[in-house]
Structures are given as structure tokens and as C-alpha cells.
């Protein structure tokens, strides 16, 4: 790569940019760029971070020209969502809305119209923010992350993908190709709610995703609950899920789920809210989200 040849003063030069046309080309490019290379999807996190000096990539490898990463396929097996598909394309897709309403809402929440033309679910996940809006939904939908690198492809569950604030399982030179989500079973639906003090252009103080499956009698057969922004990564809350399973999603069950969310949340005090406040809101949003998911699931039985 040209970077290696610029001599000692290359840091003084402006950063470089390439846009590979295939996964293989991207793998090559990243290898050449070494530790100073970073992949670029929408850039709505990365460019902001570069501007404020938080990151300083010397080579940007753009992932928006790779057909595999720009594909959104829905089949009987489920969803294959390319890592670089822009948010706008996702939430304007009627099948997405019908099959994964919660995830689609989460995508719709990201940024503003301008941001949504660029921002991606891949970027949202790989950025590693504990507050990323799509991640709780990916957890409750049991998404699988398909990763490419010089050693070939590997698959990692979304629940294991993020390892800490800004940290993921990605090794140097690896990148996310797509996210796979199974087709929803009969009587299943999801929902996502986040709390922000404003109505948009804000970062979740708490996010809560719920996925439920109801049987024909309205009894909850399966459930999954995930919270964002209340721990170093988004977390699955088993206790909340088990409070819902076997219930008819009556108020008592919802309250138990809320309490479990309150207990599971381990937020910090920061500029976006106090710890106690976040735990309270985690409980409230878990209940509201479960109510929404249940309503949708009832409509599907």
C-alpha cells in the first residue's frame, strides 16, 4: 500500500481512501493498510470520531461498493442483511416491517433523514456502542454475524459479537459481511423502544427490545428481552424473558419482567442519565415493549 512508502512523514499527509468491489479485494486492502486502516460504511460514527480526534485512520476502506454487503434478501429461511445496507432502504422495505417490526423500528430511529441515507446496521453493531439502537433487536432475534477475513469466513452470534464499549470480536483485518436472522415463527413478533429526552438525533438513555411467541390461546411460549445502554454492552435479560414465558402477558407478568430488567441493568451515572434513573426507565420500557410485541403477536395468530 502507498502508506508504507511515504517515509516518516506520512502522518502529515491527508488520509487515503479506497473502495474495493468484492469481499476479497476488501480483505486485501485491509491487510495492506495494517493497523492504520479502517473500514468505512456510512461513516456516521467513524467520520465523527475522526473529526474529533478519537480515531485517526490513515486508510479508509469503503464497504459500500461491495454487492454482497449491499444486499437485503428475505426468503423462507429468514433475512440476510448486508452489512452496508443503508437504514433508509431497510425501514422502507415492507417485508422488513411485516416480519421484524421491532428491528425495523430500531433502524428507523437512527439519526435523521440525512443520517439514514448512509447509516448501516453493520456500522451500528461494529461501532460497539452500548447504546446502539439496533443491537438489542439483533439479540432478541438471535442474529448471526457473518465475518470475513484473511483466514476465511466465520460466524458469531450477535449476543457474543460486542465485548465491551467500542470493542468487538473482530480481529485485525476482519469485517462484517452480513447479518442472518431466522424467519419468525408463527405467532411471533418483536418490538423496540428507546428513551431519549428529545424526539430524535439523540443517543438512547435506555433501549429495550422484546421478542415474543404467543400460542393460539394467547399464552407466551417463548420470549427474549434485551436492554441497551445500561451495561458495557447490550444485554439479554433472561429473568425478564422467563417472567413472560408461560404468562398471558398480564400486568403482573409485565411487572415481574420490569423488575427483572431493573435488577439486570448495571448502568453508570453519566451525562445521559443517573444509574437509578436508567434502571427505572429500563423497567418501564421493558414493560411497554413487551406490551407492543404482544399486541403484534396477537394479530398474527
Amino acid at each position: 500500500m502507498p502508506l508504507e512508502n511515504e517515509g516518516e512523514d506520512w502522518r502529515m499527509l491527508d488520509a487515503q481512501y479506497i473502495s474495493p468491489r468484492s469481499v476479497a479485494e476488501a480483505v486485501e486492502a485491509l491487510k495492506g493498510g495494517g493497523k492504520d486502516a479502517m473500514v468505512l460504511a456510512g461513516g456516521t460514527d467513524l467520520l465523527v470520531q475522526a473529526r474529533t480526534g478519537l480515531r485517526d485512520p490513515r486508510l479508509y476502506v469503503d464497504l459500500k461498493r461491495i454487492p454482497d454487503l449491499m444486499a437485503l434478501d428475505i426468503s423462507s429461511k429468514g433475512l440476510h442483511l448486508g452489512a452496508s445496507v443503508p437504514a433508509a432502504q431497510i425501514f422502507e422495505n415492507e417485508d422488513m416491517k411485516a416480519l421484524y417490526p421491532g428491528l425495523t423500528e430500531a433502524v428507523d430511529l437512527i439519526g435523521s433523514t440525512q443520517i439514514q441515507g448512509r447509516a448501516t446496521v453493520g456500522g451500528n453493531l461494529c461501532n460497539g456502542s452500548p447504546a446502539a439502537d439496533t443491537v438489542p433487536s439483533l439479540l432478541v432475534l438471535e442474529a448471526i454475524c457473518v465475518i470475513a477475513g484473511s483466514e476465511g469466513e466465520r460466524r458469531v452470534p450477535a449476543s457474543e459479537f460486542t465485548t465491551g464499549p467500542g470493542e468487538t470480536v473482530l480481529r485485525p483485518g476482519e469485517f462484517l459481511v452480513r447479518i442472518e436472522i431466522p424467519a419468525p415463527s408463527k405467532g411471533a413478533a418483536d418490538a423496540y423502544l428507546r428513551f431519549i429526552p428529545r424526539t430524535e438525533m439523540d443517543i438512547a438513555v435506555v433501549g429495550a427490545a422484546v421478542s415474543l411467541t404467543l400460542d393460539s390461546s394467547g399464552c407466551c411460549e417463548a420470549a427474549s428481552v434485551a436492554l441497551g445502554a445500561v451495561a458495557p454492552t447490550a444485554i439479554l435479560v433472561e429473568g425478564a424473558a422467563s417472567a413472560l414465558i408461560g404468562s398471558t402477558l398480564d400486568e403482573a407478568a409485565l411487572e415481574r419482567a420490569g423488575s427483572a430488567a431493573y435488577e439486570a441493568a448495571q448502568p453508570i451515572d453519566d451525562k445521559r442519565g443517573t444509574a437509578e434513573y436508567r434502571r427505572r426507565v429500563a423497567s418501564v420500557l421493558t414493560q411497554r415493549s413487551a406490551r407492543m410485541a404482544a399486541e403484534r403477536a396477537r394479530g398474527r395468530n
Binding site: 429526552p197 428529545r198 424526539t199 430524535e200 438525533m201 439523540d202 443517543i203 451525562k271 445521559r272
Partner: peptide, 9 residues
């Protein structure tokens, strides 16, 4: 982002 001026919506 964190200095929360109102947004249009």
C-alpha cells in the same frame, strides 16, 4: 448530541 438543544420534531 449531548448538549440537548431541541430538534424540530
Amino acid at each position: 448530541l449531548d448538549y440537548r438543544m431541541p430538534v424540530a420534531s
